[in-house]
């Protein structure tokens, strides 16, 4: 069996960490699927899905490190008019940070609950906000 759920979230800043641990756990616990796995996948190319410890200092260190890898003032080729959008692409930092974070994470589901470590929080990270974002939560099993 497969169940697909959606979490919608509107970011308020260009870059923002947003924890979705509780929402994902609740979706799994309400599901009729009791054993299998859950996939958490972003629908976007300038956001990331991350599993990490939910501490502000950890968030800050991750954000600072990503900024050093993909600073806003680097000479990105993407900074030009894109006919396929009718807009100028100026969000390469978001694309690169999204690549580093990845677009998904997965957990086992046993007896109707997510199996995970106590420090494992689930985040969507905004890298090109503010805007409304969509996260898919797919439960696969029986």
């Amino acid at each position: 069996m497969v169940e697909l759920h959606t979490i919608n979230w509107m970011s308020e800043r260009p870059e923002q960490f947003h924890m979705i641990t509780k929402e994902v756990h609740q979706i799994v616990e309400k599901s009729s699927i009791k054993n299998g796995m859950v996939l958490i996948v972003t629908a976007h190319t300038t956001t990331g899905i991350m599993v990490n410890e939910g501490l502000p200092c950890v968030e800050t260190d991750i954000a600072d490190t990503l900024d050093r890898i993909a600073p806003v003032d680097a000479e990105y080729v993407h900074a030009h008019f894109l006919p396929s959008y009718g807009a100028t692409g100026n969000n390469s930092t978001g694309h690169i940070k999204s690549l580093i974070c990845g677009n998904h994470c997965a957990f086992p589901v046993i007896n109707g609950k997510i199996v995970c470590g106590g420090a494992q929080d689930i985040y969507i990270i905004e890298f090109d906000g503010p805007q409304t974002r969509k996260i898919y939560v797919e439960i696969i099993g029986e």
């Binding site: 509107m10 308020e12 006919p83 396929s84 959008y85 009718g86 807009a87 503010p130 805007q131």
Partner: peptide
């Protein structure tokens, strides 16, 4: 207008930006 790959957004999203 020649703008593509964007979806309608409501007032909340306009105002947050």
């Amino acid at each position: 207008f020649g703008v593509f790959k964007q979806s309608p957004y409501d007032y909340d999203e306009i105002f947050v930006e």
